[in-house]
Design a protein around this nucleic acid. Structure first.
Lengths: 206, 206
DNA sequence: GATGAACTTGGACGCTTGTCCAAGTCAAGG
DNA sequence: CCTTGACTTGGACAAGCGTCCAAGTTCATC
């Protein structure tokens, strides 16, 4: 079917994402992408100058998806106090992760791939920028909603949360022990709550 | 030069390790390995039936190196108390990591690679088994040396340490902010120390 | 010194990869 | 209707890949 080149690009990026999610970056060849999109081989090189350009677009798309998923993680139940709110947030985030192992694996693949290709270093950086910002928002929101305050800088806390979450996720991809992962996250959530001061009844101020 | 087939295998594994460390698994082709070892192409297939067999041997070698590095991390200064001991241990481990970024990256690459190839799943598992055991030894040793006791199961603590360390390392590979990494690890070490009871003067008992 | 097993050599093979292009098809504007 | 620019097609190309093998070399053993 005939398409405008920008629409074609979008379609091919989705196709590349599908292939990469299923079989990894290494298996994401121009031909596989064309086949997935049900398109002639030449079309791909009409829409993208290089394979590198396609891969870069794919990487950017993965970061975008990461941002979407992070944003979705911000919706959690009405929390009574900070510890409970953190627990709920952690559970929500983890549910998303546990439901999408292939996407998580692809994220790590993109990271290592980017580290091997200097021109994609920016991609790896933006992965962390996006995630860091999302966690900061979540921490701030949790504190605000419960009227508590963090006793340490939120960016530092967010970086630690992110590191822990990354490590737990990667290990879970290997051992698939969801219960262990949840327990580790809960433990960390309790630690985190220790870096906050409870509300002092000034909830009605705003 | 003529060699026994097992020596040849060892040599080729080292060559493969060198190539993979420098340019990643994707760039680790049979030809590159042969060239690195300064050996004819056919030699590789005389020593290994498959490329898969070579890669499996490489992966095992990386795990082995991980074990060695972990063991080396157990040697740290005489600690006065547990928090200080943990700080010293963390610093020692981090020094090793920061000195070998390419090796760290390769470790993550091996993990994701193994996750994409079901027959290598065992490799990914043993990466964690080795690291987990090393961290457990380190935690036990630190407590023993300072006469303190952990108030939570060591395996749980070790798993959390490992997750955090993994996450911090991966992020450092991307942003190369060593100061931030150290600060995060210190923060976690303090949290860890909170899961211990100080010595009660029964040091002379043993 | 002859024999046979162990190891090396260099090249060939079929396949997949990214890239490229001439010719064809389509849709819109004059 | 015809022209023009945009998009598609199918195949070709060289390079790199893993694999294989027949012939050559080396070395220990008898």
């Amino acid at each position: 079917m005939r398409m405008a080149v920008e629409d074609r690009r979008a379609q091919l990026i989705e196709a590349a994402l599908a292939v990469a999610t299923q079989d990894g970056i290494a298996a994401t060849t121009v031909r596989r992408v064309a086949e997935q999109a049900d398109v002639a081989l030449g079309v791909v090189h009409y829409a993208f100058a290089d394979k590198d350009e396609l891969v870069a677009a794919l990487a950017a798309r993965v970061v975008e998806e990461l941002a979407d998923a992070s944003a979705a993680g911000l919706a959690f139940d009405p929390p009574p106090d900070l510890p409970a709110a953190l627990g709920a947030a952690v559970a929500a985030v983890w549910d998303t992760i546990e439901a999408t192992p292939a996407e998580q694996l692809l994220t790590y693949e993109i990271t290592t791939f980017a580290l091997r290709h200097p021109d994609l270093r920016g991609v790896a950086r933006s992965q962390y920028e996006v995630s860091q910002a999302a966690v900061e928002r979540l921490l701030t929101l949790a504190a605000d909603a419960t009227g508590a305050r963090w006793t340490r800088p939120v960016p530092e806390l967010a970086a630690e949360v992110l590191a822990f979450l990354d490590g737990v996720t990667l290990r879970w991809l290997v051992d698939r022990d969801g219960a262990a992962a949840r327990s580790r996250l809960d433990s960390f959530a309790r630690y985190l709550a220790a870096s906050s001061r409870a509300a002092r009844r000034r909830k009605a101020r705003a």
